[in-house]
Amino acid sequence: MARLNPMPMGAIILGIAGLVPFLGFAALAVAGSDGGLGNLGLAPRTILSAYGAVIASFLGGIRWGAAAARNAGNGDYLIAIVPSLIAWAALAAPAPWDLRVLGVLVLAWGLIDQDLPRRGLVPRWLGRLRLVLSGIAGAALLVAA
């Protein structure tokens, strides 16, 4: 059974802060604006794609860490590398498929990881927080695609 402890304020604040790049760069990409980034040779869509891939890899790291902390089975370690591999492949995909793949990946991983609190590998609050954050981040990626 998943542990019942309160959601740490730091997790909430940092989780919300992690959405800012998704929302900001998606808004710029949809608006067709570079927000001044063109002066630096950057494009919001490219930054969004790279950020999405980094976060997808981080999501795999959550499962890896949970497996290591609770001595879970080898299957958890194998599953944990899937987001990194898919995200890496998405970076090589042409637009709009890069953001589509990343969006679906982030959305799906929020659901896939719901087994972690059910199995007691992470606290329940993490499962709920992940659904919200993954839902918003995945939607931002898909809207920008």
Rank of each mutant, 00 (worst) to 15 (best):
A56P: 07
R63P: 04
G36P: 11
A29R: 05
R63E: 09
V30A: 06
S57L: 08
L40T: 02
G41N: 09
G24N: 06
G61E: 12
A72K: 02
L40A: 14
I47Y: 13
A29Q: 01
A69F: 03
V30G: 09
D34I: 13
I55L: 08
N71Y: 12
G41A: 03
A68Q: 14
G73K: 06
L37H: 00
L40H: 04
I55D: 09
S49I: 09
I62Y: 09
L48A: 08
A56G: 07
V54Q: 07
L48P: 00
A17E: 04
S33Q: 10
G75Y: 10
N71M: 07
G38Q: 10
G18H: 04
I62F: 09
I62K: 05
N71L: 11
T46N: 10
G73W: 13
I55A: 08
L23R: 08
A67F: 04
G75N: 07
F25T: 03
A72Q: 08
A66Y: 03
I62R: 06
P44M: 15
L19P: 00
A50T: 05
F25Y: 15
R70E: 12
G15Y: 07
I62D: 12
L59T: 08
L23W: 01
A56C: 03
A69K: 15
D34L: 09
L19Q: 05
R63T: 10
G73S: 15
V30T: 06
S33P: 00
A69G: 13
N74C: 04
A27K: 10
I47S: 09
V30H: 03
L59P: 05
D76M: 02
G61L: 06
Y51E: 12
A43S: 02
G38M: 03
R70S: 15
G41D: 05
A31N: 02
G15A: 09
R70F: 04
N39P: 06
L37T: 05
F22R: 07
A50Y: 14
A67L: 06
A53P: 07
G41Q: 11
V20N: 05
V20R: 04
S49A: 15
A31E: 00
F22Q: 01
A67R: 12
I16Y: 02
G32P: 07
A66G: 11
S49P: 00
G61V: 12
N71C: 00
N39Q: 15
F25S: 11
N74Y: 13
V20Q: 05
I47V: 13
A66C: 01
G41K: 07
G15Q: 05
G15C: 08
G75C: 02
A53D: 06
A29S: 15
A69T: 13
A68V: 14
I55T: 04
A66E: 04
A56W: 01
